[in-house]
Amino acid sequence: MTPTQPAQAAQATSGLDEKALLEAYRTMRTIREFEERLHLEFATGEIPGFVHLYAGEEASATAVCAHLDERDSIASTHRGHGHCIAKGVDVKEMMAEIYGRVTGSCRGKGGSMHIADLSKGMLGANGIVGGGPPLICGTALAAKQQGTGGVGVAFFGDGASNQGTTLEALNLASVWNLPAIFVAENNGYAEATAATWSVACDNIADRAAGFGMPGVIVDGFDFFAVYEAAGEAIERAREGGGPTLIEVKFTRYYGHFEGDQQTYRADEVARARASLDCLKQFRERVTASGRLDAAALDGIDGEVAGLIEAAVTEAKQAPTPTADDLTTDVYVTY
């Protein structure tokens, strides 16, 4: 095999340096491992409540958040684990939260659907479909008022794209010319209902025109495609150029929630796993271009597996909240 020329290799990997590529891979792998493990653990009955898994969609959260820093904030969805990990929320605390432990990100009071770390600009997974986009208008407004150059990113799904809150937020972001990016993660289904049926236009991104902002469609299995589209939108926003709507198309590997029999689906998951998977594509791209060798990636795989194993073990051993915690932290002051 002829090694790729350095310039071509850089182009093929969006100009990211080795460190950044390794970081991106580690993030995607962490999300995948986290979700695959939850899939298994949930089946044992040890995890309370609902969990909605992000497996298959890792490239979106990872590539978008690769452009973000502490000035920036994101809002997430009920399928939020990936966004949390990509924005730097502590993985062990996340796992403990999902197990309802006092060591969790939210001291066991939020659960899978409400993991948040405001200190990292992560405004929370959100149990309300369409809950996040208005909030992101606010964080973007704060960044604009404070002149930090920060941006706000609202991740939402194809289901939320039909919510009034989302559409209002798109309009307000444009009217106020906010540094906001709206990332519509179209995984094909809102619960069990197909986006091709529930979204009345061909693409969610087409709606951007109605709000006077650019709309972009990207292949959500291709980390580099998402990375470049997000980079352009975020740079524009930082420079005062206003909001962008990015539609990321892919499929989720699991059901709407764990336990969903998915009888509404065809065989797209098997096909996606076999040929479209973002981790596989990424691995092929960075090794074929000669930017990284497989051993480095394998090393990360091992480290991540260890991290997730430790996270689960520690979560299971961690104490649960007690009666003392029941009525605390409703208010800052009483």
């Binding site: 208005p134 909030l135 606010g138 964080t139 973007a140 009034g164 809150t165 209002e168 937020a169 307000l172």
Partner: peptide, 15 residues
């Protein structure tokens, strides 16, 4: 929804 939500979001970020 948009502006009340924006006020809430902005409040989490120092305004």
């Amino acid at each position: 929804s948009a502006f009340v939500g924006a006020a809430v979001g902005a409040a989490t970020r120092g305004l």
